[in-house]
Write a protein that binds this DNA or RNA. Structure first.
Lengths: 252, 252
DNA sequence: AATGATAGTTTTCTCTAGAGAACAAATATG
DNA sequence: CATATTTGTTCTCTAGAGAAAACTATCATT
């Protein structure tokens, strides 16, 4: 492992462009990309046409590009290989089966959480969050769980930059109170969302530290409030805490 | 559209590395990549660690890398966007339903055919070919259909470089005879595989010309020989030829 | 229709990245 | 155990890439 090394700027820029396409969900022009990413038009031009030639991007309508099939093929291969997904997936399936909740695995990426895997609930309800989607960092259980793994200065920085939104009447948008909730998560090891993000929906989340760099990830479980009544919470929370410990041990 | 432009070498190298991982199916070290791709170790080193930091690759066992979850996420997004897949998918589904065959969509890539989409047969048999997999170019119906779209010199070049394999007793490994078959496909517009690649399995294939650069693709349909008896072939061939024309018209 | 603004493309030049060499560490062989 | 080979990492320098500027084409506004 290198002590330090110099990253390749063209590759970093290239994947920033691809990330923009992934989150944009619509075709983008050279000028749009240049503006969004604050890259020189000439730089974007060369990156985009290189990727176009490789099939990673493809020309949609005139002068607009979209993600291409070659990226899809690579992503398929990656899905089969990713250690994180392979390791965590069986646990998501087990807990989804046991709790009848919808299970998610996500990682922190650019101040939002990206869903990298998902196991639907056998219960029959379908939560409208798909793999690849980004969720706001400060939404529901996820926000608390990720911020609980950060230092106080990092938490302060994020809370000064992003407003706590009142998604439902139960949402907390008082910064001091929110910090108290984060402190509780630090102590308990789990975060609970009691209809703070979507009315009628509850969730519980736990943080994971995965891979060589102990990267922050989280798995969270979502269901109707009647599925996550206070009576069953202790049992479910025990399950996900135990599993989190098992997963974290795997990556040590 | 530029008259000509200079591609970004770092990006080209980067995706050659990722393609190698996708086809390799196992973790690779810096030296292995360097040898396979004939890249300098220092170059590979910097590419690999840059991709590692971005989550596109991740460290598996010590000093070996694998495809990472961030690539999987991008690939998922790409799958939702790819015009080729979006355009052709409904036809594959329709024909799979109508014919009870397993339907594939593939593109030519580095002298083999990569499966980019697949619709399983409602009939119940499962063909063991998954999205992302490569199939030898000169295998069954696919080979004939792709070579039928190439010039005679290109065909000669490929046939001099790669041997015609005797996969089954029905396989043709006589070059002159194979060329006659290719000529037939040129005339008929479809290729048929009568147990030439896998015994007991028949297939029919048609070529597509898609995207701005009229890239070569193909869709093919595979089933048990009893599903593709000579009696039903004319009807099925008519269906896939009509659909191919419809798809090709979409990309003009 | 004329003018201004925006987007895409090309050219040029300076700063930097890729390849080669050297070095350190790990592994294989005798 | 000693030596040779291979792999990974770091350093250096020259050829080349990224950004700026200029140019061309298209679109929007008056």
């Amino acid at each position: 492992m290198p002590i330090e090394y110099k990253p390749v700027p063209a590759i970093e820029k290239c994947f920033k462009v691809l990330d923009l396409f992934a989150s944009s969900k619509k075709p983008l022009s050279i000028s749009e990309i240049s503006k969004f990413l604050d890259f020189n038009k000439s730089t974007v031009f060369h990156i985009v046409y290189t990727l176009n030639d490789l099939g990673i991007l493809e020309n949609g309508t005139e002068n607009k590009f979209r993600l291409g099939r070659q990226l899809y093929v690579l992503g398929k291969a990656a899905g089969k290989e990713s250690e994180l997904i392979h390791t965590v997936r069986p646990y998501l399936e087990k807990i989804a089966k046991e709790t009848k909740l919808t299970a998610f695995l996500g990682v922190l990426s650019n101040n939002s959480v990206v869903i990298v895997d998902k196991v639907d609930s056998p219960y029959g309800i379908r939560v409208s969050s798909e793999i690849g989607l980004s969720i706001p960092l400060l939404a529901g259980a996820i926000g608390k769980v990720f911020l609980s793994q950060m230092s106080d200065p990092e938490v302060d920085k994020i809370l000064s930059r992003e407003k706590l939104k009142k998604y439902t009447p139960f949402s907390c948008n008082n910064v001091a109170k929110y910090k108290e909730m984060i402190q509780e998560v630090r102590e308990n090891g789990v975060a609970i969302d009691r209809e703070e993000y979507i009315e009628g929906i509850r969730a519980m989340a736990v943080s994971l530290k995965v891979g060589e760099h102990r990267l922050l990830a989280s798995m969270w479980f979502v269901g109707l409030s009647i599925q996550l009544k206070d009576e069953v919470l202790p049992k479910f929370l025990r399950i996900i805490k135990d599993v989190a410990q098992e997963i974290n041990a795997h990556f040590v």
